[in-house]
């Protein structure tokens, strides 16, 4: 399907480390810009402290980090083998192939 290939091609840059680095730089720049906008634009607020400079920026960054770290800690506690609930559990079995249509896209396979 032509359309699909075009889309795929449009995303091909993710393969190249330098392009990814550029993308990250763009993101960082965007973040900087958004942070600076806080000083220019006055946000309407309802909650005390919400109007503080960079409130959302800090919340977003810190909350995300803490969630990931918290989850990582949680994993050390509750991660178990896939067969934990025995052979007769959904986690340890393959999805029945008869209900699937597994086909490879030979053209694109390199």
């Amino acid at each position: 399907m032509m359309n699909g290939k075009k889309i795929a091609a449009a995303f091909a840059w993710v393969e190249s480390p330098s392009a990814v680095n550029t993308a990250i730089k763009v993101l960082a720049a965007l973040c900087g810009l958004l942070f600076l906008l806080d000083f220019v634009i006055h946000r309407h607020t309802y909650v005390p402290g919400e109007g503080m400079w960079g409130f959302y920026a800090f919340t977003g960054f810190i909350a995300f980090t803490l969630i990931v770290l918290g989850a990582k800690t949680l994993r050390t506690l509750i991660l178990r083998d896939e067969n934990y609930y025995g052979e007769q559990s959904v986690d340890s079995e393959e999805y029945p192939a008869s209900q699937l249509a597994i086909e490879s896209d030979q053209e694109d396979a390199k």
Partner: peptide, 23 residues
């Protein structure tokens, strides 16, 4: 779609994304 609302949400999400990249 008020400026302050969009700005706040974009800040939250972009910085969270940044945190993801960082991590």
């Amino acid at each position: 779609y008020t400026t302050s609302h969009v700005l706040a949400q974009m800040q939250l999400l972009c910085f969270a994304l940044l945190a993801f990249v960082f991590l």
